[in-house]
Design a protein around this nucleic acid. Structure first.
Length: 119
DNA sequence: CATCTGACGACCG
DNA sequence: GCGGTCGCCAGAT
């Protein structure tokens, strides 16, 4: 598949270092941009020795959903990379005084498809 | 073959 | 800072 170059690069990330999807995409000139790099990781076949956990979002943010997220944190920490993460889950627990936002349980249904593409 | 789906990120209000 | 939109395109159905 066309992910080969991506995997090859990711495999070269030295222990204790990380990179971002955007950087990856840029380095490889992926036409789809960071997103394509992301898909490449999502399609990463396990057991191939590909250190997918060393690829994070721009700014060092961990974007992947569970159950990978916790695994990734664990692996990175075991490599000596501290994860700074304090902050409560404001998104779901913040009570906006008075009015403002409502904490409804609405799913974020990932990024809503653009207006034309609704289902 | 047609559609839907996103491990993103830049931009805008 | 936060939520929504847009571009982009390889797989899965």
């Amino acid at each position: 598949m066309s992910w080969d170059p991506v995997y090859r690069l990711v495999k070269q990330i030295p222990r204790g270092r990380v990179t971002t999807y955007g950087a990856l995409a840029k380095a490889l000139r992926l036409r789809g941009g960071a997103r394509t790099a992301g898909r490449a990781m999502a399609a990463t076949p396990p057991g191939k020795g590909i250190p997918w956990h060393r690829v994070v979002g721009e700014g060092g943010k961990l974007l992947i959903p569970e159950p990978y997220a916790s695994l990734q944190r664990k692996m990175l920490q075991s490599e000596g990379i501290p994860i700074l993460e304090f902050r409560v889950d404001l998104k779901t627990h913040l009570w906006s005084l008075g009015s403002s936002r409502k904490p409804s349980v609405k799913q974020k249904a990932s990024r809503a498809r653009s207006t034309k593409r609704r289902r």
